[in-house]
Every structure is written in structure tokens, then in C-alpha cells.
Design a protein around this nucleic acid. Structure first.
Lengths: 189, 189
DNA sequence: CAAATGACCATAATTGAATTATGGTCATTT
DNA sequence: AAATGACCATAATTCAATTATGGTCATTTG
């Protein structure tokens, strides 16, 4: 494996395990079996190394979300499956979960910026899918950006936030029932 | 004015100006022109005094939200008007705005708890209104708690959050257009 | 004598000086 | 030419000393 990859893997491991702030460049160098200076021949600073890791994670998330869609399923079914996949990734993926925690608890600025960027990219992903649905004639023309945003926020609310104030999580079917009869209903032709 | 009221007014002023943490009982006593011990004959501790102030604020918010509704208007029009009134109150009311800031920046536990409670009461307020709409035959029977939650979160997202990532605020008409064709459409008979 | 008061106390919060840790560099080595 | 790690400036942490604060209660007041 080349040095760059070894550094990336070491950094991914450390960021996932300890978060951004608690990961030191010395530590990354040690895990990667590399002199600290070597890291700086590939990445200009800690934040760039971090961003490279996050770019990789977003790709991974996107791939999983794409894989969640089923050939021949309706737009609504696939939208639901992909969104649930993304939200599952969000809480399951060690690095993502760690970053959410660090953003909230320690409020490391670099982490908070990255989290905002990830959410933007998720919404853009949804935008793409809606746009494709419109082009295929499965979805009504609409304010795609707003609809994508509303969809994402609604899923966040029902899947992630609800449980925090209401003792227990919502059932998937309850979520589908509600969104199917509201947002999706007006979206689909 | 009786001592209790003087204390309440002093506390409201101080909490609004400085937040929960930065308000001292000595300060409240001084503003209220009262010995510090006197405060403790009416309120068992700082947090109880704080809660009393917040209860008053919620009442105020509720009254304004009720006043935003118009006799003879549709359920949708009034729901929109009331929700916008609440969100306006949220950012305009000095104490509420201060608490949101303190909850986020200093993360005073007493403040965060109170903020969660306020949001719960807002959702309960929406629940009431939807239930009333159902009883009147203006609104379809539905999972009232979930719909209220979704409505509130949608308004929060479009009115409060959107601007933070998208450079500028959404226009009221854009919000109505979207929600009217989605959530409200499926709600109203 | 019942209500009000503020000096007082235990403890929590803050400060700042000293210490340690860390991101990044660059002369030296491989 | 690429890799390295000792080195440096500065940021972060520690912790003892100090200050501030919530809450009490013996005393005062009307």
C-alpha cells in the first residue's frame, strides 16, 4: 500500500475513534508507520487531511444510498429507502456518529463546518433524485431545492428527533403512512 | 405592586437582559428593591423563579398566537398565521431569543430543559388546534401528534433553518405554496 | 409576631501563571 | 528526491488561589 493510502487509513481510524480534536498528527504518523513530516507532503495541514477523510466517507454514504434503491420500485419507495439508508449511515457509521457528537459537545469549528457541508451534500443528492424523477415523468415539476430540503428535514425530525422527546422511536410504517399521504402524495404524478 | 410581582418583574428583566446563568439572585433582589432572603419566601430557588418567568412567557406567546388567528378564516390560513406568530415570537421576544442563544452557546442545563419544554408545549398547542379542526369537520382524522410535530418541524426548517445555509430567507409565499400543496392539502377535508 | 433582611457560609466558578501538548517546519538522513 | 523527527512557536491544559454565588437563618422591622 502506498504511503498516502496508509496515512488516509490511519487518519480515518484515528478520527473515527477519537474525533477530530483528539486526533494528533503524531498519532496519525505513528499509526501509519510514517514520519510526521511525510503527512505534510500529501496534505497541507490537519484540516485538509480531515476533509479528505470526510470526502471518502460521503462517497461511501452515497454508494450505500444508491444501493438501497431497488430497480423497478416507485419513486416514493426508493426515496424512502435511500433516505432511511442515509439516516442509518448517519448513526451507524463510526466516524459520522463521532463527528455529530463532537460537533455538539466540543463544538470544534472544523467539525461543525464539515457537518454543515455533509448535510448540504445530502440535500443535493435528494435534489438530483427528484430532478431525475421529474425528467422521467414520475414526479411533478416543483421547487426541487425546497422539496428536497423539506423531505430531508422531515425525515430527520421523524426518524432522529422524535425519539429524543417522545420516549420511543417511531415505527417505519407510521413514518411512511404520514409522509406518503402528505409530501409524497403531492410530489408523485 | 406586591413584592412577589416586583420580584417577578425584576427577574424577567434580568433573565431577558443577561440570560439565566449571568443573572444573580443578588441582582434580582437589587432590581426588585427587596432583600435577597425575600425572594426565597416566594420561590424555593433560582430555577423555580426562572420557571415561573418562563410560564409567563409561554402564556404570552400563546395569547399572541391565538390573536393571530382570524375569525372565519380557513384552518390552513389560521394554522399558518399562528405558527408564523409563534416563530416570530421565538426570535423577537427578548427572553426567548436570549434563552435560545444561551442554550446553544453556554448550554446551561436548566435553560436547555426549559427550551425542550417550551417546544413540547408549542407542539401540544398545535395538537389542540388540529383536534379542534377535526371535531369541527374541517380536518381529516389523522395521527394528530405526528402531524403537529411534522408541521412544527417543517415550519422551523423553512422559516428558521433555511436562511442559515442558503444565504437568504425564504419568502412567506414560497413557504405557503409548498406546505399548502403537501401537508395542508392532505389534512384538510 | 410575621414578614423582611442581609451578613454569612459552603461550594461553585473564575483566573492566571506554570506547564504540557500539538501543528507545522526544515535541516538532515536515507 | 523522498522521508524523517528534533525543534519551535503557540495553543491547550492544569491547578492553586481567589472570587462570586446560591441559599440560610439569626436578627431586625413595621
Amino acid at each position: 500500500m502506498d504511503r498516502r493510502t496508509e496515512i488516509l487509513e490511519a487518519a480515518a481510524k484515528s478520527f473515527s475513534l477519537f474525533g477530530y480534536k483528539a486526533t494528533t498528527m503524531d498519532q496519525v504518523a505513528k499509526i501509519a508507520n510514517v514520519g510526521k513530516g511525510t503527512i505534510y507532503t500529501f496534505f497541507s495541514n490537519k484540516e485538509e487531511l480531515f476533509n479528505a477523510i470526510v470526502v471518502g466517507m460521503i462517497e461511501e454514504m452515497r454508494t450505500e444510498a444508491e444501493a438501497a434503491a431497488i430497480e423497478g420500485a416507485t419513486f416514493e419507495e426508493n426515496a424512502h429507502a435511500r433516505l432511511m439508508s442515509i439516516l442509518k449511515f448517519r448513526t451507524t457509521h463510526q466516524l459520522y456518529a463521532k463527528l455529530i457528537d463532537e460537533g455538539k459537545e466540543i463544538r470544534t469549528p472544523a467539525v461543525q463546518e464539515v457537518l454543515v457541508d455533509i448535510e448540504k451534500q445530502i440535500v443535493e443528492f435528494i435534489v438530483e433524485k427528484i430532478q431525475k424523477g421529474i425528467n422521467r415523468g414520475e414526479v411533478k415539476p416543483c421547487n426541487v431545492e425546497m422539496v428536497a430540503y423539506l423531505l430531508f428535514k422531515s425525515y430527520m425530525a421523524l426518524v432522529i428527533d422524535w425519539g429524543k422527546t417522545h420516549g420511543q422511536e417511531l415505527d417505519q410504517t407510521e413514518i411512511i403512512d404520514l409522509l406518503s399521504s402528505t409530501i409524497f402524495k403531492s410530489l408523485i404524478i
